[in-house]
Amino acid sequence: MSTRKINAGPGSASRPESRPESSPEPRFAPDALDRRPVRPSRLGYNAGMLVVGILFIAAIYGTGMDVRALLDLPASIIQYGRLMASGVFQIPDETVAGYWSQSFDAMFESVAIAWVGTMVGALFSLPLGFMAARNMSPLPIYVVVRFVLSVIRAVPEIIFAIAIMLPLFGFGSGGGGALAGAMALGVSSIGTLSKLISEAIEAVDGGPLESSRASGSNHLQLIRWAVLPQVMPEVIAIWLYRFEVNIRASAILGVLGAGGIGSLLSTVFGARDWDRIGIVLVVIILVTMVVDQISAFIRHRVIHGARIRNGGGAPQEDDDDGGAPTPGPVSGASVEDDPAPKSTRAAAGL
């Protein structure tokens, strides 16, 4: 204990005002310095930082990047920004209004592709999620489904679109390309959605499962009444989040010929039509942001909605409902009871 006091802090001994004048013994024992811990080596950390820096520089030179181009960046931003802004901010005559509505139509096609893809993914991901959850499915099914899902996840949706879906369903906006895009998004959504859902299922509270099992439920009944009610809000949030991701992905797939805003973007890019490019970009950003906001709002409601309703709206009910409302703030703890009047207890048959 005494050594702790001596080691109170660096420099504490040299500060005369901190030394109590009445105490005769010196606060600084001669061997105190020996007892201080040695500063741990930072060699590993420093070496790590060095390696990261070397890799960064090596990557730049290895790929032949011309870093000096960055110096021209501000100028080009202004140049192209002005070109695009001139398209966005011009008073829309008939042609320009046509550009705008064409962009919105194409963007809504992209959103529709993303929605169909998400629905396909959602439909398959729920059963697959259960099969990929260790606490819900037998080991052989679990291993096989996990493996298939990880293969799906390893293939980017762009590859699905180029290599499988576009050759199958055809290119171009409206029709084949859109279907191909939706299917590519759907299949690749299955991979991530099922994984996330299976993790949500593995994290459920085991209590309701045990009680459900104890009342003689079979496996499907257990899933329906003990697991699904617990995971559904999270599952819906996962689906919606994937929808947000799919909107961006479907814009990219369009560039490859899957229809939607991407097709339009690649057309106007081919023509170096900068004012139209500006319009397309504004539409993409605008619509994506709006859909993101709506989706995020719904996700938040789905996950936190119940708690808000319980905390604010309906206070915890009084036991036996004796008629007298509980005074004062409602305690958060779930263990609470009231001294119910004898009469109501008798009425309740207690």
Partner: peptide, 11 residues
């Protein structure tokens, strides 16, 4: 009512 809105004794 939702089961979560009940007190411990009620649950």
């Amino acid at each position: 009512m939702r089961a979560s809105s009940l007190s411990g004794g009620q649950q």
